[in-house]
Design a protein around this nucleic acid. Sequence first.
RNA 1: GCCCCCGUAGCUCAGUAGGAUAGAGCGACUGCCUUCUAAGCAGCAGGUCGCAGGUUCGAGUCCUGCCGGGGGCGCCA
Length: 559
Amino acid sequence: MLPITERIKTGILSAFHGLNIDADSNLIHIERPARPEHGDFSSNICLVMAKKVGMEPRKLAEELVAKINSEPFPDLSKAETAGPGFVNFYLENTYLYQTVRDALILGESGYARHTFGNGKKVQLEFVSANPTGPLHVGNGWLGSYGDALARLLDRAGYDVTREYYVNDTGNQIRMLGESLLARKMAKDVPEEGYQGAYVAEIAKEYLGSDDILEAGKFAASKILSNIKATLERIGINYDSWYSQASIEETGKVTETIAELKTKDLIYEKDGAVWLAATRLGDNRDRVLVKANGDATYLAGDLAYHRNKFLERGFDLVIDIFGADHHGQVASLKAGVQALGVEPERLEVLLGQLVSLAGKKMSKRSGIYVKLDELVDEVGPDATRILSLLSSIDQATTLDLDLVTSQSAENPVFYIQYAHARIASIKKMALGQNLDIALRLEEAQKNNSHPSPDAVELTAILAETNFQILDHPREIQLMKAISLLPEVVEQATVDRAPHKVTTWVRGLAADFHGFYHDCRVLGNDLSPDITRSRYCLVEATRIALYIGLNLLGVTAPERM
RNA sequence: GCCCCCGUAGCUCAGUAGGAUAGAGCGACUGCCUUCUAAGCAGCAGGUCGCAGGUUCGAGUCCUGCCGGGGGCGCCA
């Protein structure tokens, strides 16, 4: 059966059809009213259509409602007009029972999974911090964001590749090498060099020559492996680590510039080679080759993006940068377009910066909090959720002391606690050899996505009397579960994983309320109520697990 | 000067494609553990949605201007 919102849409469309009114289904927006007296769902379609049809919205709504009520679609209780011309829909709870069945049959892997990604190859590049020092919390913020977005895209049916662009060449590596050698020889680290103690630590292990580049590459690779370890601590695993040096060494930069030359977008001035970026929407032209013959960062970045699009064939590339890289977006887009790539295939998402008690975080100034420190203090799950609470358009001011002292109040525990409580019910039910628990467990084991053998599950659920679930807590919980597929879709297209966080907090709240008021196990309860509540609880667990997993947070069995 | 993001409760933030009486958490105060985990539940208090116009049947949401905060506009990366 179609999702309920689709059924409502279809119901509206066919009612309009019955009234001989031509309605565009794209205009029909189904929403969930904030107030229960406005029904389970509502639509403003008559307010939108009134002018076009030449009728008072209220009048139009009345005719539409009469039509809908005369031929109700499945699960509809009644439609009503309200306010200036809203159509409110009141549904039978049966649509919620279907949600519980869906969640149980489709399971963790299948529920709230979408196919609109159509297997498109999408690459997400994120963090990509220079391997010249440890990651700071700002990197962690965008790391959690990028990884959560990758998980969402994957669930939406995209073919996702996570990539880290390793900036292992250029001045900074020389500077790193100089800093390392200075430490090695117990001399002063150059003014512009890397002063951090970690360089001294690496220097102890360095047995190579006095060559600056060799020393720099050694240090960079050491630092990179630390970066990798830090990211793994918070559940971020890349599919690929792409070396900038490899692009230069294989001559891809010169190749890219040559290609741009054939498009007549290159000129020379003041001894440098320029890209006529202005002609492609940038606010100034950009240098690709400096007067001294070195390629600029942009030249390398264009070669890299040429590789992403034209050599590796990604359909969509999403670059996630900190807002401090805003200045390079227009030139990158211009360059990519110059290479013949449709502009909509490159999406650059900017995350506003994380600052520290009002101060800017930077490796150079030495004012920053290491991501590892934060993870040490509050743990991986709390670290991840902290950055996924709000939109990346929101700049964050981090107060480490406050975060640490309040770590027990981190919202992640509230959510995880709900999962742990469910696990506890489940464990007890299995311990008591509760029939429904045992049978569900067994049937789920044999029910694997994407080719579910749902026969047994369907049979179990058919024997379950869901009609008995009508407590307000139960209703609210089922509504929350039913929302997940839409939340996943919306969070994906909006590139907004924090919407999953908002939802999962709500689900946890609804579960805690249910848990408080509705017991699942106990001798004083009828087998019917235990059975149907157990199914509801299990559906909740599945939805919670999916939400937590999308955020990259663990779903503990006990706390 | 130009470009991007933000301004919602004391604090940190949600607020769907413009919808009906703006929501959470933390903090303050008050109740609730003989029963599946009290890391929980319930109640109470807290708001001219930065300001001023505009569009609309309807604006926290869209447009314009201003104020305030953050970031950017290199032959740095």
